[in-house]
Write a protein that binds this DNA or RNA. Sequence first.
DNA 1: GCCAACGTTGGC
DNA 2: GCCAACGTTGGC
Length: 218
Amino acid sequence: MPPKKRARVMKRTAKSGDSSETAPSKSKRKAAPTVETGETVAAPLPPCHWLMKSEPESRFENGIDVKFGIEDLKKMPDQTSCWDGVRNYQARNFMRQMKEGQQAFFYHSNCKEPGIAGLMKIVKEAYVDHTQFDKKDVHYDGTSKTDNPKWSMVDVQYLRMLKRFLPLTELKKYHLQHRSSGGPLKNMALFTRARLSVQPLTTDEFDFILSLEDEEPL
DNA sequence: GCCAACGTTGGC
DNA sequence: GCCAACGTTGGC
């Protein structure tokens, strides 16, 4: 049982309205027979790798420092922290799809050198983000009710630093390259879904990015 | 600090 | 339900 700890991550983007409530549970996950053949079609598998953004440099929001970099995670008891403060429905819905044991990249955003710093794993699946009810918290959401909480969080545990930091600029070069060549990063959410703070990675994307650890910087 | 991209709000 | 105005993200 991870002790109570605290990660302050990303800002909320809205405080009310559930209009983008596109809960993953509503997506068609079951195999369905096709009209033509009556054969079962493989259902798309939910994502199993992730990228999560957080700010490693001090920035004050309502007088509170929202800094939480990978070094901060490493210093937590059990090197484990809840990933609270996500206030975007798509990001939240991705967190709700996360399974214990899955790996996620720790991405440093809004800082001198944005990029992927390390690896962590999901150690507790989605549960209620208590900070939505805390008036003192930066991410307090007065529109969320305790009997129907809007926001979720997961617990993550530090795994390791990457052998070398993977700067956004380098990832972008690969992304552009792959857009013409059809390589693994051609659709990477980091570039196609710019403001999404919790995003899925395909196994191809995940493996390719990990392989860059052993490559010279591009 | 600027500002493009884009999610959210709310008037109609 | 459209869409303009607004607010936030996050690179540069």
